[in-house]
Design a protein around this nucleic acid. Sequence first.
RNA 1: GCCCGGGUGGUGUAGUCCGGCCCAACAUGUGGGCCUGUCGAGCCCACGCCCCGGGUUCAAAUCCCGGCCCGGGCGCCA
Length: 424
Amino acid sequence: MRSTEIKPEMDGERVIIAGWVHEVRDLGGLVFIVIRDRDGFIQITLPKKTVNLEMFKKAKKISRESVIKVEGIVKREDKAPNGFEIIPDIFEILSESHSPLPLEVTEKVPADLETRLDNRFMDLRRPKVSSIFRIKSQISKSIRDFLSNRGFIEVHTPKIVSTATEGGTELFPISYFEREAFLNQSPQLYKQILMSAGLEKVFEIGPIFRAEEHNTTRHLNEATSVDIEMSFVDHEGVMEILEEMVKKVYGNVIEKCEKQLKTLEIELEVPKTPFKRITYTEAIKILENKIPWGEDLDLQALKTIGNEIGGFYFITEWPTKIKPFYVMPFEDDRICKSFDLMYGYIEIASGAQREHRYEKLLENIKRRNLYPESFEFYLKAFRYGIPPHAGWGLGLERLIMAMLGLSNIREAMLFPRDRTRLVP
RNA sequence: GCCCGGGUGGUGUAGUCCGGCCCAACAUGUGGGCCUGUCGAGCCCACGCCCCGGGUUCAAAUCCCGGCCCGGGCGCCA
């Protein structure tokens, strides 16, 4: 049974419980062992007088974090945590833990993130840490449910690719038999091809790889991207889906992850939709023109804007020049139908209505000094009938970071990959 | 990649400025002992550490140079 399935009302019942030895409190003639499982803690109590002596000695010697299985009787006891304890008659050691431990699961002594990540298997035994990933699981599930209910088809595009999405970011080269290939930075090109294929609404939750040598608390070299692409809509249409999805995800987490939120001491509120929208030009005004129109907003700028607005908001109508070749410009082609979803100063998602006119797209690629030949597999899909379409990509770990107020994005990844970390 | 700060028992810190008083301190842990109501149990005893490589000096955890790594800030970044 799980720790949470046992109640004081089960007084006298025989139960089997298994888990990790969280703590041993040896009082001499009375030994308390706190067993931890996925859901919580349970105390087993061994009074020397009443339990088998051999078992008593074995239990007394058990090392912390060993995995044990205990069979015994539930005893209602006001002096015990949660109002009950288990008096064992069978005590089995499934796996003995070595010592000393690489870090303290009990949180009596803090550990650096570095130490924690080096020993992630043990770090994840801490309820606070595992709660993050229980919530992440719920978020993925909510996103799948939400998009599926809206008629989106889940797809899986290749992660080994021949070319960059837009030439900006650095790619990880890999050896692909006799050729060079790369790890994909984004499913962008493929999900657009699927619009030509007539799938109409697609989504993908998958890994993306960036070979940037950045070293910050909000960048990873391997992250999870939630991507959608949708035909016959403009940027406004997919912005609405995005904000409703975020709202739904918050609602689901509040409803289904009550325990995890409590463990993390976080009180969540469902954000109100529609989210605030400011244009790039308005953003520049907030900055009192410290950034010249046409330049990208740097971190300091985003912090100023984030402080000003707060919570979730969109920045829309970006200068065409600083956005990728596949975005659709307005009639005034200095600005484009592109948007970023922000939370404070963190960019959570970005999207746009796409340029679906073949000639314009080709022109954009050339103008950015990219090679149309390497995009031929993509461009081809635009020559035989492709609907107008729009989409976005959302950084799953960024969303979690925003939701749970994590100070480092690595906290939102089980086994993060960064500039120096490749193991575990 | 740049700037600043840092690397001390398994873990987290003090000591470094101003070299010797440090065969390095505290907490937690580990081993042992006492203890029948713990819930960060308590008490007693013991164990365990100066990132790597050079240099300065009678003497280096401490100063200098290089490397690796970490933290903060930034840059780069659909």
